[in-house]
Amino acid sequence: MSGNMAFAIELFGQGVANGLMYSLVALGFVLIYKATDAINFAQGEFVMIAGIVISALASAAYEFPLWLALFAGLIFMVVFNIALERVVLRPLIGRPIVAIIMATIGLAFILRGIGPMVFGAAPRGLKLPIEDFPIIIGPFFFTPIQLLGAGISIIFLVIFGWFFLKTRKGIAMRAVADSHQVSGAMGINVERYFALAWVMAGIVAMLGGVLWGSASGVDTQLALVGLKVFPVVILGGLDSIIGVIVGGIIIGVAEALAAGFIDPYVGGGTKDFTPYVLMIIMLMIRPYGLLGRKLIERI
């Protein structure tokens, strides 16, 4: 029994670390939803394309030093997302939700095609200059990349939480999310804040691409991390930044425990399945999530 317990604790630690990295990806989604009311089905592909660009630049083909590759990746994501907002999302403002969802799905297809076509489809590694030894904290056992990922996630979640609560731009952004018309009438440049939200999502996706890329290698499979975003944001609440942390940790722990304890009995695959079951349950009880605003309409 104690062996089981130790195993559970071990899985718990892994789950928390992975969950915080999910939070980082989900944060991009929440930022966009919070500011523009748009649902971004391409968040996973943003992460993927950032990972592909950075790893390709850092690889033998281009031989950028790592810091330059990271910087180039950052610039790329910022420029790309500004263009994206301008060309694709802005014409769709005010259209039904299905239009925006389909547009981002179309975007996901484009990114999945362009990434491998420009930089080659072969999987690549993304090596960060950190040691590759396990770190043991109490009963937990982490790889350095997990700790780094969790740390970066927490730092950025705190920064963005502070940004939305305390800064002038953050408050303006929340106003824009509440009502485009009213915030426009109050003198807020709505379109600029839309662009800002997409840029922030791009920056977060770039970080996610670096972390997930160095944790699990870079190819188009990296985009699958985007599928974990939905359970995380539904659990935490679509418009809550703290909810992203909570949801991420819950999903991370749940899938680690499911993979550890249920997989042997059913023959695998529960890792991808459990988050969605949790999400369905949450949708039935509290569709707005643990920490989201209760804006949902009932009929």
């Binding site: 939700i97 969802i101 539904i234 399945f273 969605y276 999400m279 949708l283 949902i296």
Partner: peptide
């Protein structure tokens, strides 16, 4: 059934979950 309680984004995500869950159940 959930479409009574939820709509728009939430329904989209719920049906996405249905896709994965049905696929998983059949597969397993």
């Amino acid at each position: 059934v959930p479409s009574l309680r939820i709509k728009g984004v939430y329904l989209a995500i719920a049906t996405l979950a249905a896709q994965f869950i049905i696929e998983w159940i059949i597969n397993h």
